[in-house]
Design a protein around this nucleic acid. Sequence first.
DNA 1: GCAAAAGCGGAACCGCGTTCCGTATCGTTT
DNA 2: AAACGATACGGAACGCGGTTCCGCTTTTGC
Lengths: 197, 197
Amino acid sequence: MNDSDEGAGQAAPSRRKDARRNQKTLLDAAAAVFVTSGVDAPVRDIAAKAGVGLGTIYRHFPTRADLIIGVYRHQVDACADAGPALLATSPSPHSALGQWINLFVDFLVTKHGLAAVLQADNTGFEALHAYFLDRLLPVCTEMLEAAAVAGEIRPDTDAYQLMRGVGNLCIGAESDPRYDARRMAELLVAGLRRPHH
Amino acid sequence: MNDSDEGAGQAAPSRRKDARRNQKTLLDAAAAVFVTSGVDAPVRDIAAKAGVGLGTIYRHFPTRADLIIGVYRHQVDACADAGPALLATSPSPHSALGQWINLFVDFLVTKHGLAAVLQADNTGFEALHAYFLDRLLPVCTEMLEAAAVAGEIRPDTDAYQLMRGVGNLCIGAESDPRYDARRMAELLVAGLRRPHH
DNA sequence: GCAAAAGCGGAACCGCGTTCCGTATCGTTT
DNA sequence: AAACGATACGGAACGCGGTTCCGCTTTTGC
């Protein structure tokens, strides 16, 4: 899949020195451009910001998804790690789930255009979708199960659908002042509560 | 806004006869192409299907939103009309709301790519967004108020946010077999139930 | 039938993603 | 240090799709 690093792996001990430097430069440039122009920013803009040619960016990050993953991997991992922590410190699994979803929503709405590109059907972004699922689905599943065991929610809830639904709720949220994705996500989480305990 | 008709108005009594015919031809062609290729289908495809030039399509429908509105106006109107009817026949306002949302979701998920293009921030689709809001928001507001008066839901629920949330939930639903937008929408509606006192 | 008005077609232009290859740089070997 | 293969770089060039623009055709009013 990935010959050297980009995508899912980050250790790049081999390779030529300039190549490694360029990779880092590109990630920094991409992060900066993503903030100002969103994750859909023209590839040329990122290349220009990094001061490299187009060939270079495509060699290091064959798809835009690779670039996005590279830029946000740490934050996604942090979100994943927060799950078990919340489960341990929260008064109830359902409350932990709510807080965790809040974290996820906050992450998504502050990355312009990221939520829109996260859905599975978006051609060329399968890797991105897969990475998010890979990291977050187990956590979500764990929390849902804990809540189900505690009898707080219906036991038939599917973690994938919940993640997908929450991700969808975040689409375009950053550019619509009348819309509050966090509130909608809370409603969704509230909706899976058991009718009465 | 619209010199003649496209967009929100449909009566086109004046104009040249061939122009009126082309407009109809274009709507039919667009409807057909939307079914097979989604609402993002290349303009050229629609022009080809209709057997007209590019200039013609842009003259009749300056933006893609105009075309989409033209194609789906009747169905949107039907959905709007269904609201009061459901309110009258359903056992409770909340139940009517749930059924109405189901109608809306079914409409959206069967129109490939429509939900994705419905959100406000999508440049060039303001007219589409506005039309949907124009027709459906009053209905949604009415149903929410009825449910609030009946004490079934919290009284502070915003119709715009609900519509936007439901619309978002439908994005990409048609191409992801693991995802059931209707179920998520039901969860959302369930979530605004009053926490029984 | 004729001229102005209205409408039509599609070439052309632009932005953007993506590919490809001649050139430059690196690092290793002698 | 010189030389040479491997590795990486830059950017021209191509394809696709949206949008504009203008010379030509059809319609309509007289």
